[in-house]
Nucleic acid binder design. Structure first.
Length: 311
DNA sequence: ACCTGTTTATGTCGGC
DNA sequence: GCCGACATAAACAGGT
């Protein structure tokens, strides 16, 4: 229940750490890397709370980017004009968030020397690796659809029927709450779908710990080269059914050729993660209904993950 | 000047 | 109480 004096919950601080918010932004874009300004934008678009005191939280966010090993800096190429570098998630940090929840990490991601020979743990290696992965993904997506995806074209994350437990604060539940439009119409979802974007391939790479094995095992017989996500992580390791070990890097097995097959899968794109048209209900000028971003309002899909429907 | 990125310091909170 | 995760503030350097 909203407190007196508060219009909505939407201007309350979301229960996500800056690391979580940053990870959401990065993972939510097709390229899996974003410049700082785009990360700011993503957060401000989705969380009205962060439209104020920008200096304060943006300083904190920058601190987190630099301080945490899970974020790696990718220098711009000469043909990518703009300020600052791109930021990406380290390929080996996919298991940071317990049970897919973005509320709190299971443990801080630290680079491990022991893993150096298995995965790109040095920032420079990881940066190069991610650049290549981003290129592969983009070219595969474009080849699949004949659609040219402009840079930062959107945070296209699909939502599929979960087959395993999803934490109430898992991204798909966050999404489910966020992209409910007044009247039930997910505007930018329809837009994105009509644009024909193949989202499942992005989906699995965007949220491997959410959509990795569960989706692949139950819905899509087509896998990303078996048990491996595009990040070279064994998808099985993202299944949180009792798996508690830290992410163990494995040899990379990118298979962009398999991406087109996934385009045929049913997809739902939450407007929550769509760049083109931030949810109208989140507009600073439009008083919105409670977004349930506060833990104090665990309504609708928060307790009802099946609110994310698949037709 | 402003933005970006790094580093240090301090405090809170929750789990063990 | 200790420790780790996280938030916040601040100073500083470098780039545009």
């Amino acid at each position: 229940m909203p407190r007196p004096g508060r219009n909505t919950y939407s201007d309350q601080k979301p229960p996500y750490s800056y690391i979580s918010l940053t990870a959401m932004a990065i993972q939510g874009c097709p390229e899996k890397m974003l410049p700082l300004s785009e990360i700011y934008k993503f957060i401000m678009d989705r969380f009205p709370y962060y439209r104020e005191n920008t200096q304060r939280w943006q300083n904190s966010l920058r601190h987190n980017l630099s301080f945490n090993d899970c974020f790696i800096k990718i220098p711009r190429r000469p043909d990518q004009p703009g300020k600052g570098s791109f930021w990406a998630l380290h390929p080996s940090c996919g298991d940071m968030f317990e049970n897919g929840s973005f509320l709190r990490r299971r443990k801080r991601f630290k680079l491990m020397l022991a893993a150096d020979h298995l995965a790109p743990s040095k920032p420079s290696d990881a940066a190069h690796y991610l650049q290549q992965q981003a290129k592969l993904r983009l070219s595969a997506l474009q080849a699949a659809t004949g659609t040219h995806l402009p840079p930062m074209s959107g945070y296209n994350i699909g939502v599929s029927q979960p087959s395993t437990f999803k934490h109430p604060f898992a991204i798909e539940n966050i999404i489910a709450r966020e992209y409910k439009m007044p009247g039930g119409l997910a505007f930018s979802t329809m837009q994105s779908m009509s644009a024909g974007y193949p989202l499942h391939s992005q989906l699995t790479s965007a949220w491997p710990h959410m959509y990795g094995s569960s989706v692949m095992d139950t819905i899509a017989p087509i896998t990303m080269a078996g048990d491996y996500s595009p990040y070279g992580m064994p998808l099985k390791s993202f299944c949180h059914g009792g798996q508690t070990l830290p992410a163990i890097p494995v040899p990379i097995k990118p298979t962009p050729a398999s991406l087109p097959c996934l385009a045929a899968l049913p997809t739902h794109i939450p407007a929550f993660l769509t760049h083109h048209s931030p949810p109208q209900s989140l507009s600073p000028t439009s008083p919105r209904t409670a977004t349930s971003q506060s833990p104090a309002a665990p309504g609708d899909s928060l307790t009802n993950p099946s609110a994310v429907t698949v037709h």
